[in-house]
């Protein structure tokens, strides 16, 4: 999981004085709104990295043809209890085979990390008051899960969960030993 630091982010929004520029000039690593992307899509140079921010009400289906051109999709959590973006993420990865960065933005809390990771997010912009250390710890509690997910498409009944348990125990033992030094 990549933790985004807004001060050192390679991606930039195209904001004018009155909000998003209606027709931004093509440049590398622009993170556009969906409206901006629609405005420039037909003229955007092939191979120039571009990203899109989506509201959680957007039907991913409508973006299918554009996906190979996108290097970043930012999905939004207006409130952390609004889980629509998990379904968007799952569809992007599991159905449309999107391979670019998938970033969670908005009300992103430490305790969402396991869900984000499992539905296909690989980058998060944590809410300002959240601790990265706690977020990393939140990813480490479970050896495996029952149902498959984007990271591990096989459900438990199709995996060797015994080996997963052993690996997790080894990891925990190593961590405990490391703390003792």
């Amino acid at each position: 999981m990549k933790f985004i630091d807004t001060h050192h982010d390679t991606w930039h929004t195209a904001l004018g004085e009155d909000g998003p520029q209606p027709h931004p000039t093509a440049a590398a690593n622009l993170l556009l709104t969906l409206e901006q992307w629609h405005a420039v899509r037909d003229t955007w140079p092939a191979g120039l990295a571009v990203g899109v921010s989506l509201a959680n009400t957007v039907d991913i289906e409508t973006l299918e043809a554009d996906l190979p051109r996108l290097g970043l999709i930012a999905l939004h959590f207006p409130k952390f209890v609004d889980g629509r973006a998990y379904s968007q993420a799952h569809l992007l990865r599991a159905r449309y085979r999107y391979t670019g960065q998938l970033r969670a933005t908005g009300d992103v809390l430490v305790d969402m990390l396991p869900l984000l990771q499992r539905t296909g997010f690989d980058a998060v912009l944590l809410r300002h008051d959240q601790k990265r250390e706690s977020a990393e710890r939140a990813l480490g509690f479970f050896a495996g899960h029952y149902q498959g997910d984007v990271q591990q498409p096989l459900p438990a009944f199709a995996r060797d969960v015994g080996a997963e348990l052993a690996a997790k125990r080894q990891l925990d033992a190593d961590a405990a030993a490391g703390q003792g030094i």
Binding site: G83, Y86, P114, L115, F142, Q147
Partner: peptide, 9 residues
Amino acid sequence: STLHPEFAF
């Protein structure tokens, strides 16, 4: 359904 990552919220 237990800790289904997509359907927790």
